[in-house]
Computed example of a mutant assay.
Amino acid sequence: MTITDTESVSWNPKALDEMVSNDAGRPVLFTNARIVTVDPLSGTVTGADGPLIVGVGPGSVTAAEDDNAIVVDCTGMTVVPAVVDTLALAGGRGRRSECVATLTPGNTTDFLVVPDELAADVLSEVATLMSRPEQVRALVAAGRPVLWAGTGAPGRAAAPEAGIPAAPDLTGSPRVDVWIDRKGFLHQELTADDRYDEARGGRPHAYQGRFWIDGDRIDYLDDLGFWACGEFQGDELHHAGYVMKLS
């Protein structure tokens, strides 16, 4: 069966409008779908809601009116994770808690909605996204529509440009300073011109290069050519097993 362009364009337009303008944090409930959770415990179920998934299963729809939910009717559709854990699909995860990208409560709402006939399994549904995106009813990331009825959703996030980005001006940033680990072994200086200078064990200039901060993530490109990363957690900088604080 081939899905026509008319059918794609007309798929749940009211729900899309409500999701795009959803500044009040209303929950979004996708109903009547076949949901392949890729979770060994949940298996394949019907009905889901959530940016985090708060419920999966046929009974979720009963709370739609109570919660003032945005309801998306997915009759004839299959929902699968948009991020595929191929290791789990191949049976290579020893514990359920090790499985990533499952559609279970507490996980991020990243999923695909595709007509049943194009969704024999998770991989074929993801292949539809890559080869025939016009057939995709919805691609949702953290509860926000990215694709809808085969086209880009209004207000969707723009993908970052490939390549090394231009360095922003970090003058006055509280993160531009000298960070020192708990034992005093590692000293990492971040400067406003997007350069870092790292001393280790009293050895100055052990590593030097450029850095970029995106939210709480920091990426390093050393002058020797290798990449590394770290994360700001409150008043701490976590990097390569070290936990640093401002000097």
Rank of each mutant, 00 (worst) to 15 (best):
T104C: 03
S97K: 07
V122E: 15
A63Q: 14
A82T: 14
V176F: 06
Q188L: 15
G91T: 00
D39C: 12
G143F: 11
I35T: 15
G94S: 13
L52T: 12
G55V: 13
P204T: 09
V100W: 05
H187R: 08
T6W: 03
G47N: 05
A69N: 08
V28P: 02
M1T: 02
E231M: 10
Q135G: 00
I218G: 08
I35Q: 15
A228C: 06
A88C: 08
T171H: 00
R175L: 11
K245S: 12
M1F: 13
V136F: 07
R210N: 06
D121Q: 08
A82M: 12
R26C: 04
I3K: 01
D66V: 14
V126I: 08
C74N: 10
R95P: 03
D73L: 12
P58T: 01
V136I: 08
L29E: 02
A63E: 02
G91F: 01
P174M: 06
T109L: 05
T78S: 15
D193H: 02
G201A: 09
V9D: 08
L123G: 04
G234F: 07
R182H: 00
V36W: 12
E117C: 06
V176G: 00
C99E: 07
A162G: 13
G47C: 06
S21W: 12
A127Q: 08
E189C: 11
R217V: 09
R175Y: 11
L237T: 04
A158R: 15
C99W: 06
D197H: 13
G202K: 09
D39K: 10
W227C: 06
G201P: 01
Q233G: 02
I53Y: 08
P51W: 02
V84P: 10
S173V: 02
A119N: 05
E198V: 02
G202I: 07
D116G: 06
R210E: 14
F226S: 05
G150P: 01
G55H: 02
D39H: 07
G25R: 15
S10K: 11
G106V: 14
S60A: 14
P105V: 05
V28D: 04
G57N: 04
T109W: 12
S42H: 05
M1H: 11
K245L: 13
D73R: 10
E18C: 13
Y196M: 11
R156T: 00
V146R: 06
Q135A: 09
V146M: 07
D67H: 11
D177N: 04
G94W: 12
A158W: 04
L139H: 06
M19Y: 14
G25V: 03
R26M: 02
A24Q: 13
V71P: 04
T46Y: 12
A199D: 05
E189S: 15
I180P: 11
W11I: 03
E198L: 08
G25K: 10
